[in-house]
Design a binder for these strands. Sequence first.
DNA 1: GTAAAAAACTAATAATCGTTAGTTTTGCTG
DNA 2: CAGCAAAACTAACGATTATTAGTTTTTTAC
Lengths: 196, 196
Amino acid sequence: MAKIKPGKNASKKDVIIQNAAALFKKKGYSSASMRELAEALGVEAPSLYNHIGGKSELLQAICFKVAHAFTAYLETIETSAGTQVTLLEKIVRFHIRMMLNNFDEVYVANHEWKHLKEPYLSNFLIQRRGYEKRLIALVETGIVAGAFKNNNPCVSVLTILSAVRGLEFWQQHKKNISSQILEDDMVHLLLNGIIK
Amino acid sequence: MAKIKPGKNASKKDVIIQNAAALFKKKGYSSASMRELAEALGVEAPSLYNHIGGKSELLQAICFKVAHAFTAYLETIETSAGTQVTLLEKIVRFHIRMMLNNFDEVYVANHEWKHLKEPYLSNFLIQRRGYEKRLIALVETGIVAGAFKNNNPCVSVLTILSAVRGLEFWQQHKKNISSQILEDDMVHLLLNGIIK
DNA sequence: GTAAAAAACTAATAATCGTTAGTTTTGCTG
DNA sequence: CAGCAAAACTAACGATTATTAGTTTTTTAC
């Protein structure tokens, strides 16, 4: 027994959460069972409860970890120098890399947040809405500064966020196209639609 | 009893499917129960089985109805005249309108197809992949014709499809922005990133 | 080495699920 | 109004679920 091995910088709980993200991505939160998760970890289901509070806690951990990563990066951007164009490009590139490097967790946060329990659900949505608003504010500033076209900034931001989110379809094309080309082409495509 | 009322052009089965789409969208396929669906229709759960074969059949009907709608439209486009720019614009506008007018079903097809059973799952994915390939071919033709920038056509198509798919976030903003502005701005934003 | 703590196990519970069987009611047709 | 089919109902089954209780094993600390 004692099969759950913590990683270098990961506690046993972190290992469980990471496996949960992979499982939730594959089967969806509701269809994923604690028994399956346990099996992936080489353990019986009740053993998990020595380390976590319950299934819903796993989803909370995943969703808020992702939300925090994006919010934290946005804060460093907001307090850094640069034109709105370079700032927006940095954000887009961060989204793309998060999608490629933390696929399981980002995917789950994007698709399964709906199954969060209150008050976590409301909290998550508020945080998400706040993030969007700060991005929209950045685009508005860029429009006033004459850097961006005078499109509706809400449309611009949601289009960009959606396009980046769609990178989930690229797990299958990954073999055909390098990450660098993908990132550059997508940044180019999105920004040329918005830059004046 | 006899509560399930067919609509003008909708059989009783169609009514059930429509309600199922709304429920699957709200709760996800796995979390949605047949008892909930029955309640929404003012009926007990076993009564549903007089009209449908089972829960999975409902998901199949929704997913393939949506897939067929997109494929059918693409066929009319492929056999119609026009520059690649105008053809692509028509397709984008069709996607946007499908998203706005058939939100429940398109949302479910986009999010819950993973729970299709074989062989429907494989069928759906093949159909979807074929649709993407035909769109990519259209963009490639446009590149050769000098109408589109020489970006990777896969990246362009998947970016466009993803951006349009993100319209699901607009159900909440609908009040603030008219459908027409939304459609025009998004088309403008996406095409200007790709048109030479 | 031995005691204590951590973490695994087995067994079981209560709830919910999709679905089936069998019965009763509804609504149409003559 | 009688008869029949469509469609509703009640009751229940078997499977699966997250989780708890209680016990045993493993690891840690001295």
